[in-house]
């Protein structure tokens, strides 16, 4: 996917939920039953995406908050965003929408040594959802089918 510095993203709400703890983000896709662990600088990038930051803003955030001796920050961000897209965890933010305030990275990660993000994927529980195939969610969290899906 072609990215520009102004490209911004948002979580694929409401199917995608996440929590960051101890510098690691746990992401669950309620629609597919797949879940993920996002480590190292990934938690900061995820936080930027959550706050609709642009790619340039996320890169600046990382450069100002980590000890970096790598020139690959932008490439790492771009690769992770591609992966998150492929996994249907994020979507591109509509152009013209104002960016939300950018959040600082998790406190425990600030000024630590930069490490490229790692996204680990787990599919072992997906069958649990396949047994209960309707699991779309609305904003309140209760799954529901989108209109028309019953007619499929």
């Amino acid at each position: 996917m072609p990215l520009t510095e102004e490209s911004a993203f948002e979580l694929n709400d409401p199917a995608v939920i996440s929590e960051t703890i101890d510098g690691e983000t746990i992401i669950i896709n309620l629609a597919s039953g797949t879940y993920y662990s996002l480590k190292h600088s990934g938690a900061t990038i995820w936080s930027g995406i959550q706050h609709a930051a642009s790619v340039a803003q996320i890169a600046a955030l990382i450069r100002s908050n980590f000890e970096i001796d790598s020139e690959d920050v932008e490439r790492d961000i771009s690769s992770l965003i591609d992966l998150l897209f492929e996994e249907d965890l994020i979507r591109q933010k509509a152009p013209g929408e104002p960016p939300a305030r950018l959040a600082a990275p998790p406190a425990e990660m600030r000024l630590s040594r930069y490490q490229a993000p790692i996204l680990e994927k787990f599919t072992d529980l997906a069958t649990m959802l396949l047994l209960d195939p309707v699991h779309d969610v609305n904003e309140e969290g209760w799954p529901h089918l989108p209109a028309g899906k019953l007619d499929a």
């Binding site: 409401p14 929590e19 669950i28 787990f122 649990m128 969610v137 969290g141 209760w142």
Partner: peptide
């Protein structure tokens, strides 16, 4: 988190 959330997705986040 993964097991208990995916078991009862109706509770959402």
């Amino acid at each position: 988190g993964s097991y208990n959330v995916l078991r009862w997705p109706s509770f959402g986040r």
